[in-house]
Design a protein around this nucleic acid. Structure first.
Lengths: 103, 103
DNA sequence: CCCACCTGTCAGTCTCTACTTACAGGTGAA
DNA sequence: TTCACCTGTAAGTAGAGACTGACAGGTGGG
């Protein structure tokens, strides 16, 4: 569900494409795609929640912090049953949210 | 691409779910899902363009016009390559749009 | 010290689209 | 004729979320 929503946006598809070549750090990727860094963060966040990419903060040899992202290989079989399951899962999640809020 | 965008919206997933039981006409479906008819039209239109559902206007035995919709069985393999292909196709489409406008 | 890199996050703006209300038309039955 | 169904579309109105600019912080090198 989060996955379907994540993949349903052209800009995010471009991010996926940008990562398909290999791991890149955020600033570099932003330059390549010609999009602002905060915006890229936003999309990366959603893609990460959907389980499509992984972020990894590491220190480069010269001591600078670099956040590298890379694609998680995925192969989703999209059928009616998958859609129904996603809907049900979403309803459940909604219920849990209500239950979990109190502490 | 249109497909990915179409499936990336909760409300449209509900429409798919509503049709999973079998063919229904628009007004009836709107009642079942508890959504306004014009809104349902909008979503059905997008789903139809994405090739996920088919509409069929027919006359019921008592002569009333009824628009029946039904699901088109689909099974999309969602992988990185599919995403890249969708992006390329979209760029092509964009170019054509520009070319076709003058006339 | 200042400059060039990098990571993060927040508070706004602005655009797109989801959504509603309201209309026009057509049929059959009481 | 009026009522209860149906299809379709053209407005306009919220509202979500995409997007920007500006900030704070941290490192290495000239």
């Amino acid at each position: 569900m989060a996955l379907l929503a994540a993949v349903g946006h052209p800009q995010r598809l471009r991010v996926i494409a940008g990562l398909s070549a290999g791991r890149v750090h955020v600033s570099e990727l932003a330059r390549r795609l010609g999009m602002s860094r905060p915006l890229l963060y936003l999309h990366l966040e959603r893609l990460e929640k959907a389980g499509l990419v992984t972020g990894d903060l590491e220190l480069s040899p010269d001591g600078k912090a670099m956040k590298y992202f890379e694609l998680v290989p995925f192969d989703v079989h999209l059928t009616v049953d998958v859609v129904l399951a996603a809907l049900r899962a979403d309803e459940q999640e909604g219920l849990n949210d209500v239950q979990e809020t109190p502490r």
